[in-house]
Design a binder for these strands. Sequence first.
DNA 1: AAAAAAGGGGAAGAAAATTTTCGACTTATT
DNA 2: AATAAGTCGAAAATTTTCTTCCCCTTTTTT
Lengths: 227, 227
Amino acid sequence: MENIHILIADDMEAHRRRLERIINSVDNLSIAASAKSGYEAVAYAAIKKPDIVLMDIEMESQMAGVKAASEIHKILPDTKIIMLTVHQDNNIVFAAFQTGIVDYLMKAAPKEEIIEAIYSAYNNQSPIRPIIAEKIRTEFARIKKSEDQLTYFFKIIANLTQSELEILKLLCSGLKRKEIADIRAVEVETIKKQISSLLKKFDKNSTKEVITEVNELRLFDLIKDIS
Amino acid sequence: MENIHILIADDMEAHRRRLERIINSVDNLSIAASAKSGYEAVAYAAIKKPDIVLMDIEMESQMAGVKAASEIHKILPDTKIIMLTVHQDNNIVFAAFQTGIVDYLMKAAPKEEIIEAIYSAYNNQSPIRPIIAEKIRTEFARIKKSEDQLTYFFKIIANLTQSELEILKLLCSGLKRKEIADIRAVEVETIKKQISSLLKKFDKNSTKEVITEVNELRLFDLIKDIS
DNA sequence: AAAAAAGGGGAAGAAAATTTTCGACTTATT
DNA sequence: AATAAGTCGAAAATTTTCTTCCCCTTTTTT
């Protein structure tokens, strides 16, 4: 399994030490850097490009934790930020979620919980914790929609490969995998793999859902005449 | 010279035809697609990833030109959008500039001017035209700063290669090219080339300016201990 | 004014990241 | 049971990005 690089940001020496010990105790986790302020955290993040950031949200010196999280998210949208908090103040936690963090933990959380959170974040599973779960979930659904369903969709389209685009067109025309394979002169297995990647990019589990969205956005005619 | 792919977006058939003729008359310009509405323009942009978009800003049906420009800019930040306008309404032109367009032209502009604008945009030179020049220039300077000088700088840092980062560190320590070359055990020429790329990424013309910025942002200590 | 350093452009080869291709296996549909 | 849909992994091919170095011009030092 690949190595996961982690950036620690906490202004208290003792807390940093504890996190360092925990991370070092797990084989495929490693420390990218250990920052003592929000400002340092942003700089180290830019330099080291960690997979995960464990950020104390209560830091105040130089740059607040929430602000630092937001900056890091702007610079490295794919880096997963996990926030550490002492008092579970739902409002702060919620504010942080809006700036791009993917999970939060109590600072006193047991080792196992921290490690699990790291793996979850790395694998894109947000184990949204109970207390603020609902507020976040509904709010997030809203944001994702309003980030313009259209922009969101087009961004995905722009990231498709030429083959995927072509296959999307053929799928929208109602063709089956075997038929598509014949047209493209490759094995069905290849087409299946490519549709699989396609679905992953659209974050959907079936072609039906993708086609439904294409139709809802009235994109069929445009996709149809892809060269 | 490479081929430049251009997307045309205008709701009037005659205007599209004229632009198509102009583009086809130049050897290394080619038409990626020709859109009849802002909506189509966004879709085609996502599908074709053109280098340049020539967008009629007065389109209204389905999606306004300014809105379409803004969407395309979100999806493809590197695509250069040139706006076409009939009445030179500075406010509209200015609004458009804020959403990511890089130049504007009168619709009646002569062929030569259009072609020149395309090349300028492609080569990242904004020939900012006189009438609104000052307003835009000052406003833009402000925006570029306030887009957080810090975020902007860190984004660049995050895009440096390992060698470039290393060289930046050595430059900040006051070393000369020859000395850096010795440390890295390569020819001075190599270092010179890499510093050149470094400067391009920072959009600066000399290492001095880069170092000044590093110091202003108090980043020297952090950069110093890059592994 | 000469020498040294800084900077720009281009191009070949190396290295890294993506894409394409396909087989094996699992789960839904018909 | 058969067909279709979908997932995972992995080798080969392709594309992109980095590295390296050469040649040439401009700026700075001495």
